[in-house]
Design a binder for these strands. Structure first.
Lengths: 232, 232
DNA sequence: CGGTATATTGAGTGTCTTCAATCTCAGTGG
DNA sequence: CCACTGAGATTGAAGACACTCAATATACCG
């Protein structure tokens, strides 16, 4: 299989895949319409406030999706990894992008023109329903996070974010998180200052909850982290 | 028109109405399937964690939609007023409700069984698209609010919330907000302590930004409030 | 091997929260 | 009509949590 022209079958294996409801003809249409590209760390897929003409399906790699605040501080809203689709919100609403998508781990990403999405929505109500379920799922997550940011302490949120990263990207057998983020990026998820993340990570380390080796974070006691995160 | 059996035409006049894409037969189907009820302040339409079997369309009145945190503190996520639809997320995802909906101003609300929503999604791709656009819009708002809560001060957020209430519910000619909320409810939107809201409102008052008469809040200088809210 | 980005640490400070006491007001029952 | 009651509003004081700023250390990149 050509790395830059993967079939969507590869993506299809992921559970949250939108496209499993497509029939053969529709899959074929999708395959013919998409175009794939390779991106390096730091590249911007699309930028908040610009028009985008389609959406993106991640074949491999990782992106961060963020909004930029007043003083230019990023707030990371989500990540996208293999099998995830991003940019669909702007396509569906026919509005400019409300987030920026930036590659944080070398990625291969397929572009799907807006018209194709609309055609599929029109022709296949199951696809349509799946897309709706996706946005509803994200909506629920966003609402939960509003509650957390509003009510939990930074310490609780950091514990929660570490567990979320585990859930999203997994860990090596020794508990080391598979994603590598800078302290600043961590702060931009948690919604705090970089220094606070550093201090709290160092606290967690001395409490034997995590291990730290450079940027790599090893989760040593998920049960306690979960307790700290205030499980709700 | 019977107050408890309104036609959806009344609702249809609102701009964000989902149902404008329905044809006559579909509207008829919807009309026949819905059932309406009157609710008093304090009543719960549905509760977080319970199964709901349909969604709700607000004919008149106001509800608050909130999530409940660890210590039982509410975080208000949204309001629903005339023409708004709520509960559709749970229907679409076929999951239990992830928020509680509580009446804060006497309301007449139509119940629409889940099956009707699914039928309409299946039969009418425009309706389907409208519903998708609605959830995408809410998703965008939620993401913006995550950024705000994470990055702005309480003072900035309170100013922002006052302007949001103006935008959502409007003001009397003299600038008095049409919604009446308790200080605690305000705090549960802003994501802060009740006392903080009280102190900041009193600051705003002495800065001649707002007037206070009991629970009524009068916006005197929206331009400055907007500036304080850090417009972004 | 520089040079830049990132990480770390300390000190000082300010914003907000918490707790507790008091006050106001509307509704209730006598 | 008035005291009673409870919910909500207000105020003060004390202190915690987290932020900013600045200095330094370390890591990473070409």
């Amino acid at each position: 299989m050509d790395e830059l022209n993967p079939t969507c079958l590869g993506c299809k294996s992921t559970s949250n895949n939108l496209f499993r409801s497509l029939n053969e003809a529709e899959t074929d249409y999708l395959e013919k319409s998409k175009s794939c590209n390779k991106y390096k760390r730091g590249e911007i897929l699309y930028r908040e406030g610009t028009r985008i003409t389609g959406c993106y399906c991640v074949m491999s790699g990782i992106l961060k999706i963020y909004k930029t605040g007043g003083i230019g501080k990023e707030q990371i809203i989500a990540f996208a990894k293999s099998g995830d689709i991003t940019g669909y919100r702007s396509v569906i609403s026919n509005e400019q992008a409300c987030t920026t998508a930036e590659i944080i781990e070398e990625a291969v990403i397929c572009y799907i023109p807006a018209q194709v999405i609309f055609d599929l929505v029109k022709r296949n109500s199951d696809f349509s329903l799946s897309l709706m379920q996706l946005s509803c799922k994200e909506l629920n997550q966003a609402n939960s996070y509003i509650k957390d940011i509003a009510q939990k302490t930074v310490r609780e949120r950091l514990a929660e974010v570490l567990l979320m990263l585990d859930k999203t990207f997994g860990t090596e057998p020794d508990g080391t998180l598979k994603v590598t983020l800078t302290r600043e990026e961590l702060a931009n998820i948690v919604g705090t200052a970089t220094e606070s993340v550093i201090r709290l990570l160092s606290d967690f380390k001395s409490e034997k909850l995590i291990g730290l080796t450079g940027k790599k974070i090893q989760l040593l006691n998920k049960a306690l982290l979960n307790k700290i995160s205030n499980f709700n």
